[in-house]
């Protein structure tokens, strides 16, 4: 294998594995900036993956090549719906955020596998007919060296995810909406005094995390797994949460961390084809995202990295 094709393989598989993580991690940052801890990202991804696969299998003949894209929309709606449960419980009903998120994580796999069994009478769906596949950018893929590595036979969703992360950063840190969202997560009492609708912004944060988390699950199902079963989403939601923390709650930081975790994941899968890497036991690469997250959390000791009132229930006029 020559250098260029080796790099192309690493880059494209890193992008494919990072994409679901980027979407979900960026979504998580919206929720946490509004002060709602969302450990339910895993469950949201499960629902997204499930709904996109069911839609894809049902409507592949009708919509043809457009199916995976429409399935993304369906998954985002389902993601919003399941996250609404978390939103109502934590914002209006004063539930503990971790407990409520865990309920989502317990509920989503059970509900989706139940539905798969009820619809298809078996525990696993068939493989989808229309997946995202590979995309070659016109023109720029012709650039020598860079073109084949970055833009030829690559994942279009990865580039969309990177754009989404940049837009999310701009929304959170450069717009009025973002400022208010963060103020609600930092100090809801003060935000309320200034006439900001605290509950409304918290809802916005959680529902956006559901939207992007659903898309993350759908991207995973339609570009990596190709079908849905109980074993489709196992830990990607938690890695996304890790990426968000690793990126210090900043969407662009989260994107960088997600790319890195995607790189580690892809190495443990394609590593066998590469020199040097194939010598490293895969357990190190598998554990790397989790261990690094703990290390980062410890290194930022004492510094308030996350939103200040993250995880507390805001009770109006207490």
């Amino acid at each position: 294998m020559n250098m260029v094709s080796m790099l192309a393989l690493i880059v494209s598989s890193t992008l494919v594995f990072s994409t679901p993580l980027i979407f979900t991690a960026v979504g998580g940052s919206f929720s946490e900036h509004s002060g709602v801890v969302n450990v339910g990202l895993e469950g949201i991804m499960v629902m997204g993956a499930f709904s996109s696969v069911v839609f894809n299998l049902t409507f592949a003949d009708t919509f043809g090549k457009a199916t995976p894209w429409i399935a993304l929309l369906v998954a985002s709606v389902v993601g919003v719906a399941i996250s609404a449960l978390h939103a109502v419980a934590t914002i209006n009903f004063r539930a503990d955020h971790i407990v409520s998120g865990t309920v989502i994580n317990l509920l989503a796999p059970a509900l989706s596998v139940f539905l798969v069994k009820a619809i298809y009478a078996k525990g696993q769906t068939d493989n989808i007919a229309q997946s995202f596949g590979y995309f070659t950018f016109p023109a720029i893929s012709k650039i020598p060296v860079i073109g084949p590595i970055l833009f030829k036979d690559t994942s279009i969703m990865a580039y969309i995810a990177i754009v989404v992360a940049i837009i999310a950063w701009w929304i959170q840190f450069k717009t009025k909406f973002g400022l208010r969202l963060r103020s609600v997560g930092e100090n809801p009492q003060a935000a309320d005094t200034l006439g900001i609708n605290v509950y409304g912004y918290k809802y916005a944060g959680v529902l956006i995390s559901g939207l992007l988390g659903g898309i993350g699950g759908a991207v995973f199902a339609q570009s990596i797994s190709g079908n849905f079963s109980a074993g489709t989403i196992v830990g990607q939601g938690f890695i996304s949460m890790a990426a968000m923390i690793f990126g210090k709650w900043n969407p662009i930081g989260a994107m960088g961390a997600a790319l890195f975790f995607g790189f580690a994941q892809s190495l443990s899968i394609i590593g066998g084809q590469l020199p040097v890497i194939s010598k490293i036991p895969s357990v190190y690469l598998q554990c790397a995202p989790y261990v690094l997250t703990i290390v980062v959390l410890v290194l930022f000791l004492g510094k308030a990295v996350g939103p200040k009132e993250n995880g507390t229930n805001y009770i109006k006029s207490k």
């Binding site: 949460m241 989790y290 261990v291 997250t293 959390l297 000791l301 004492g302």
Partner: peptide, 26 residues
């Protein structure tokens, strides 16, 4: 980590679940 660095035990325990899972297979 919680006692000496104030690190959130929720995150650390979630992360360790996966570390233990992969290490057990190894």
């Amino acid at each position: 980590l919680r006692a000496y660095f104030g690190t959130s035990e929720v995150i650390v325990t979630i992360m360790l679940n996966y570390v233990v899972l992969y290490v057990s297979t190894y």
